[in-house]
Design a protein around this nucleic acid. Structure first.
Length: 676
DNA sequence: AGCACGCCGACT
DNA sequence: GTCGGCGTGCTC
């Protein structure tokens, strides 16, 4: 057989291997870029993708091997898809192959042409469910204005800034309708899997004769492949998914929506640490299609872009149906009796407010961002605390199964009867989590039906739906939960949202903690009074030692814009994003010194240009996890291009740094990190 | 990452 | 005498 040409092929090689670029293979057919192929790599056969760019020069003396098979019954991945992947790989400093193969359903990698043909045939069974003709409510004047402005914006990204309950979803449902009418596909990103079913439902009602598919990690491998194929082949008109869906190949893209665009879940925290929101914006520019970012509390990055005129801002300040935003009140912990303030989550004013709801038959939501019974156990005799032997963290006391659990490495033991150090029987829980709060509420308000939703109660499949169902059915009076319940769920009967004590975020070393707290509280406030009739007596109660804090004052007046302005001013002063651009280099090793030594060696390799600052290596705030020591080094740059140029020169050189750093386990670069 | 090869301890 | 520990090195 003649081997007519050489092809550039990317394979799934991790960043740590030397294989950063495409490899060269021989082929008798000039398969077009985007074709999936099977190629020999070392002693195994792997899935690769024919790549548009030229391959790196093979090492001299390497004999090229032939492509073993091509999955040519599948339409090649479109050129723009390859461009998006190449960009993401370059921007986030990963190999193209890792990003490319990571963006393809795992199931697809294993199929040959024959198996694929079978799946493609079965695809025909995916059809729109049909159903009653949809009811499109008349847009409010605000929604109509937002849509007009959006249509005029063309392909310029738009930031839909609408308060909770202003009907943002209605706006992007209309935008999707426009897109479908023009014969294009719409991609809608949501931050969490939990939020896909209800949104899918809503889309299905509006577009009964269109095929809607979802893409997220909760699907079975077969479902994921089927949905991905439906999108890639243009059969699906609407793709709804989590961050991974930003890479869905679409033959006729017409709109990308990023719902709750401020949500940190859009930033991947492992592997290639990409931001799906930022990639969505890039993809929009690449494919000349509009991008709609929606939030009641936009990320400061997006808000900044809108302020600079890069994004079109569509504002919708008014709640639909005349609903007003709930009153925000503060319980000043300085003014409640000292013992109550320090030892009880439930102050008299909070209990009174909850009692009032009980009498009126209304529901309450109590938020506490800490699961378990108590974050730590403490021996009153010798001072022992329930530290994790493998991590620099406390193990959390879970009363339900009487366990001490490390939330970082998973190390779990039964709670000791007595102090393991001194044998004293008096060991006590310190602080409180949702379990304890649930218990205290039940004690303080006998007869109240108290329920709890957090990662522990919703582990089982369908458990979250079941609990939400009970809440909606009015079978629960008080729902205790972590931020999980603050997101997206529409609780009609809730007239009180209480936040037990969110002060820690005010003084956190994480520069985004304030932004996150504000978004969480605004979102939580949005849970109350969705029903206009109850809006007037709906309130948010925040227990705090610092009621005068500017963040809380902005919350009181629901004034995101004032909050954003003050935060942006602070960030400018401190040289933080979006006014500066950051990257973190992280190293993990057997010892802290070893991890830092590797970072120092990396720093010594860098030719630091004008506009870039390299800070010294420091231990990470969570210094040790599962007996691995972690350190990091901050890179700060005045602009994105300066940072990108620096990283492009520097990071590839770090691969050759292994040698005399024996204890080093791994290292990685995090571009645009969420926390430093 | 896989998956080799490679050189030193307790077992059929 | 082998089975196997995971150190280090390569993959077009």
């Amino acid at each position: 057989m003649s081997q007519a040409c050489t092809l550039a092929v990317v394979v799934d090689a991790p960043q740590h291997s030397a294989l950063r670029e495409a490899l060269s293979y021989l082929s008798d057919t000039a398969w077009p870029a985007g074709t999936l192929v099977q190629v020999p790599l070392g002693r195994r056969m792997v899935c690769g993708i024919v790549w548009p760019a030229a391959a790196g020069d093979p090492e001299p003396g390497v004999e090229l091997r032939p492509v073993a098979a091509a999955l040519d019954t599948l339409a090649p991945l479109p050129p723009h898809w390859c461009n998006l992947v190449s960009f993401a790989a370059g921007y986030y400093q990963r190999s193209v192959g890792e990003v490319a193969l990571g963006a393809v359903p795992p199931e697809l990698r294993r199929l040959d042409n024959k198996q694929l043909a079978l799946r493609l045939k079965r695809l025909a069974r995916l059809t729109p469910p049909g159903g009653a003709a949809p009811v499109w409510p008349d847009p409010t004047p605000e929604q109509a204005a937002a849509l007009r402005a959006w249509r005029e914006a063309g392909t310029q990204p738009a930031l839909l800034f609408g308060s909770t309950g202003s009907g943002k979803t209605e706006v992007y449902l209309r935008a999707v309708a426009d897109t479908l009418a023009a014969g294009r596909q719409a991609l809608v990103l949501v931050p969490e899997i939990n939020l896909t079913p209800q949104l899918e439902q809503r889309f299905a009602e509006r577009f009964p004769d269109r095929l809607i598919v979802s893409l997220h990690s909760g699907l079975t491998p077969a479902q994921r492949l089927r949905h991905w194929l439906a999108a890639h082949l243009g059969q699906a008109d609407i793709v709804l998914g989590t961050r991974m869906a930003v890479f869905t190949p679409l033959p006729r893209p017409g709109l990308i929506v990023v719902d709750e665009e401020h949500d940190p879940s859009y930033k991947s925290q492992e592997g290639a640490r990409y931001s799906a929101r930022d990639l969505a914006v890039y993809r929009g520019r690449l494919e000349q299609c509009p991008v709609l970012l929606a939030s009641a509390t936009p990320s400061l990055e997006s808000w900044h872009q809108a302020e600079r005129g890069r994004y079109v801002r569509l504002s919708m300040p008014t709640r639909i149906g005349g609903g007003v935003l709930p009153t925000v009140k503060f319980i000043d912990l300085n003014h409640v009796p000292r013992a109550a303030a320090h030892h009880e989550a439930l102050t008299p004013p909070l209990l009174a407010a909850l009692g009032q709801r009980l009498e009126r038959g209304e529901q309450s939501l109590v938020l506490l961002n800490r699961r378990g019974y108590a974050p730590v156990l403490h021996c009153l005799e010798c001072g022992w605390k329930s530290g994790c032997p493998h991590c620099s963290a406390w193990r959390v006391f879970h009363r339900s199964d009487r366990s001490l659990r490390c939330h970082h490495c998973g190390y779990t033991e039964r709670v000791p009867r007595a102090c393991p150090d001194c044998g004293n029987a008096d060991i006590r829980p310190v602080g409180r989590g949702t379990e304890r709060l649930e218990e205290q509420l039940a004690e303080a308000l006998p007869g109240a039906r108290v329920a709890r939703i957090d990662a522990d109660t919703t582990r089982a499949k369908g458990a979250l739906e079941a609990e939400l169902g009970r809440m909606h059915a009015g079978e629960v009076d008080i729902l205790v939960g972590t931020q999980m319940v603050a997101k997206g769920h529409d609780f009609r009967g809730v007239t009180l949202v209480a936040v037990v004590n969110p002060d820690a975020a005010l003084f956190s070393s994480d520069f985004r903690a304030g932004e996150r707290l504000f978004a969480l509280l605004m979102q939580a406030a949005g849970r109350a009074g969705r029903d206009a009739a109850q809006a007037a007596r709906s309130e948010v109660l925040v227990q705090t030692w610092h009621p005068a804090h500017p963040l809380y004052q902005a919350l009181r007046t629901h004034d995101y814009e004032a909050f954003a302005a003050s935060q942006l001013a602070e960030r400018a002063m401190a040289g933080l994003p979006p006014h500066a651009h950051l990257a973190l280099v992280r190293a993990e090793g057997r010892t802290q010194e070893g991890a830092q030594a590797w970072l120092q060696a990396a720093a010594d390799l860098a030719g630091v240009p004008q506009g870039v600052t390299l800070y010294p290596p420091v231990p990470m705030s969570l210094q040790r996890v599962a007996n691995i020591e972690r350190a990091q080094m901050l890179v700060e740059a005045a602009s994105r291009p300066v940072l990108q140029r620096f990283l492009a020169d520097w990071v590839p050189a770090l691969h050759g740094l292994r040698g005399d750093h024996k204890g080093l386990v791994r290292w990685a670069v995090d571009v645009d990190p969420l926390a430093i």
